[in-house]
Design a protein around this nucleic acid. Structure first.
Lengths: 337, 337
DNA sequence: CTGAAAGCGCTAACAT
DNA sequence: ATGTTAGCGCTTTCAG
């Protein structure tokens, strides 16, 4: 391992000058700078970030906490975070926390603290007060995606607005018997379940004077399988069928479409389906969705962190979302009562 | 930030003793040990791993390189790696490399070297000779998943065996006109494309005396969309249709099933479909597959790394795979000529 | 079994 | 503009 001393010796300068040259900041004469760089290149020198960080206090590493690695939304956000952080020359320390309290505490109390990260990004994690405090106690910039997180710097999308947009799309097409698949009234502490989506849904129904039948609100876990299960139950139940389904994630919406197909229910003629997210599979299922650009959310979180670290401009305040209209909500043939 | 000095002072011992106690290794009298631990707990002390690693040379961090973060196989493997490493108290430094040569070099030359990792795990990455050398030059244990990687310690599944198993399943059911969707003859340098799967497929056909029509070999990118596209082309082409499709990944197999459904082709009556991987969506599509347990592959890679670091026993040599039979390959009604 | 002391490789004053 | 000199917080000989 070639060290800074080797470079200094070869360039005929002090280690301080090498450090100054390579860290960019301080003033170094063009001639010396050239010599140092030549020496560093020749020797294939790369700073040891642990030594550097021990001396400087900065690690150029950000801790990223995610609740799931193998679910589309989270891995897409992570992908965005990774790209943006790497571009800025930052390393990422990855922590996949589980619902297990033990594991979570261990991450907050041990991993994060010993590793010495410059900041942390918490992706859609439901934190209790204690955990929030521990995070804050790190004394670092903490950016959370998907709030609300009282006390934390949170990057939110307008969940209510998204849900309203989707619901309005359905209502505008004449649907009055709309089922909702998403988070229930209860709370999932494992990852942040946007109850606000349900709220937006309810607001629009109320505004349109449509009474909400509690039996039309189904709980599922945001996966294709979960949506499939919920929709199968819903669509094969006795009594009148809803004319539309609003799923709080595209994956559940896709599950619902699959369930409908299996039951011989045509989408969109017999049933309109709309989701949220902008999932890459949306196109193949011709799914209308409200895209919330998870990749960009990750990039924005990274940008927010870099801004807090003085490395960049803060990103724009609000995360965008747009309605992507596809075939799953084409005009219904069987408008409801 | 409370440091080792604080703990030493409070326990009335030297910092050396604190270090010895907390690192487990050396002999410390029970009485002192108790005092040290009490002091450390009381102060909420956590070692600074950068200081520790600077002094000891060990970082308890392993670098994990993946080609994709947002594809099921890779994120599932990563999930397994993460779980196992975390359980062992190791941190993970995540590097999502891209096809871009620049980015890749930067990861190998700069990120990995400056960060000071104890080992690296390369998940299904196609490395050229130069990159392999750079990795080896790190002087660290390097475990690759999905080879072959000449020169690297590689965890492989028996790709040929997997493909043979899947193909034999089809042949045993009377299929003689089988299409293959997977890697083409050419090479994808971005991520490791198991050409061996095609080879296993061909071997079984040859053994069964079934000539392989080159038009039956389609190239796709291992995604649902890719499989959908390839299968749509295949199934809507002029001339006789194959009676079975062997897709080199479950995602492509699912894409094929979706394509078949759209074309009104019944699975499995008109078309049998088999995939490889053990994808979580397999059940919902009633897909027969050869499961290769990606989560466990990740865990095994982590175990292999820990073994090389002297932290555990090496995992068993061969990665298991099993045929999971579902409805997509139930007896065909239209046996081919 | 425990302490003293010398670094690990770098950065950041402080000089010059 | 550049060199000198303290450390950063820990581990590890080396003594005792």
């Amino acid at each position: 391992m070639t060290s800074i001393d080797d470079v200094a010796r070869r360039a005929g300068v002090s280690t301080a000058t090498v450090s100054r040259t390579l860290s960019g900041g301080a003033a170094v004469s063009p001639a010396t700078r050239a010599r140092v760089i030549e020496a560093a290149d020749a020797l294939g020198y790369v700073v040891s970030s642990r030594a550097s960080s021990l001396a400087s206090g900065r690690t150029r590493t950000v801790g990223v906490i995610v609740p799931y690695l193998d679910r589309w939304f989270f891995s897409t956000v992570l992908s965005g975070v990774s790209t943006a952080l790497m571009r800025a020359g930052y390393d990422i320390s990855l922590y996949n926390i589980t619902p297990d309290r033990e594991v979570r505490r261990h991450v907050f109390d041990t991993f994060l603290r010993r590793q010495g990260v410059d900041a942390v990004i918490a992706v859609s994690i439901e934190l209790d007060d204690d955990e929030t405090r521990r995070l804050l106690d790190l004394g670092l910039p903490v950016i959370a995606i998907g709030g609300p997180h009282p006390g934390l710097d949170t990057l939110t999308v307008d969940e209510i607005g998204i849900a309203r947009l989707a619901t309005e799309h359905l209502v505008a097409r004449g649907h009055r018997d709309i089922a909702y698949i998403g988070a229930g009234a209860e709370f999932d502490t494992d990852f942040h379940v946007p109850t606000n989506r349900r709220r937006g849904f309810e607001q629009v129904l109320a505004a349109a004077g449509i009474p909400l039948d509690p039996a039309r609100v189904l709980v599922a876990d945001f996966t294709i399988q979960g949506g499939h299960r919920a929709a199968t139950a819903l669509l094969s139940a006795e009594g009148p069928r809803p004319t539309a389904i609003f799923a709080a994630s595209d994956e559940m919406a896709i599950g619902a479409i699959l369930a409908a197909r299996e039951l011989g229910i045509r989408v969109p003629e017999d049933l309109a389906v709309i989701g949220i997210d902008g999932h890459e599979l949306g196109a193949i299922f011709d799914l209308t969705t409200v895209d919330q650009f998870p990749l960009q959310q990750g990039e924005r979180a990274a940008a927010a962190v870099l801004a807090r670290l003085g490395e960049a401009e803060p990103p724009a305040a609000a995360s965008p979302f747009v309605l992507t209209e596809r075939g799953s909500t084409a005009a219904a043939e069987r408008p409801s009562a």
